[in-house]
Amino acid sequence: MTVMSFLGAIGAAQKEAMDADERVIIIGEDVEANVYGTTGGGKTRQETGDFVQMYGRNRIRNTPISEEGIVGAAAGAAMTGLRPIVDLSYSSFLYMAMDQLVNQVAKNRYMFGGQASMPVVFRSAMFYGLNTGAHHSDRPYPMFMNVPGLKVMVPSTPSDAKGLLRSAIDMDDPVLTFEACLLWGLKEEVSDEEFWVPFGVARTHREGSDVTIVAISSSVQEALAAADALAEEGVSVEVIDPRTLVPLDRDAILRSVAKTGRLVVVEPAHRTCGAAGEISALVAEEVFDSLKAPIVRVTAPDMQIPFSPSLEKQMYPNKEDIVNAVRRVTGITNPTSTLAAAGN
């Protein structure tokens, strides 16, 4: 085991994949100089273990700023024998390549009757919460859940980031991975062995009996903090991280809600047509009879992200919002009373 940061785990997965398979290449802006710290052993080029030194410029493709061309090239390369990892840096830049992602990457296998396979991974960072203003603060993963043919992963811990990325690279379908920058520094012991976290399998971070919280991306950490606080009040919270949104582990969510009877869904994306809305609808359709209270979503509002730190900090779900949501579904308004005392 090694203590790895979220970002370090991504770099480790990329290195393992590059070593394991010659067909894996990395393509994107500024990947050569390792400015984001995922294409080398360390933060600076002087340190040993730079990917360009290790794999050469044939496999580490530093690109011009041409997102549409980059994504299209990766798609064509994936259809003809390579397994590209595309580093799109900020998730806001995905919009530049929307045509390629939606019309080519997602549709080609289907349209061509299975003749194409599209083994390609698109990495992008969600820079929200870091005072970068509206053009760098997007959380656009729900948009891509709405595009059949794409798979979507949203890791929230270093080990999941490593294991899911390995699975994504080895998979024959296109995967978009959304990496919350708020998690970049998060550290955890991660196995030095190669390991693969399967898609479509949720992780239960904490078991509980009163309320299910399904939390996504950086919201998982907030939900765990809320669960700690609520435990002191006698409320037992189960925290589930779906880890991949397409495919979604429906069974894990439904099983948990059938047990607890209450659901709070938390995510940093906008409210309308978000993952939280989708998960809420799923639960309402499938296990309505188990519900003891209305489902509550805790999301970012349908609003753009302001720059000023004093304005931005209110935009994403935090521990207090989650605690309040749980109080709503449990009917507890007095923080000192227990669930049993409240008559549940």
């Binding site: 061309g69 064509g76 390369a77």
Partner: peptide, 19 residues
């Protein structure tokens, strides 16, 4: 989609080049 398949050909050429 008019123009959309152009970079796909470039990608096929990239495969040839890398491999």
């Amino acid at each position: 989609i008019v123009g959309s398949s152009i970079p796909i050909a470039m990608g096929a050429a990239l495969s040839s080049s890398v491999l």
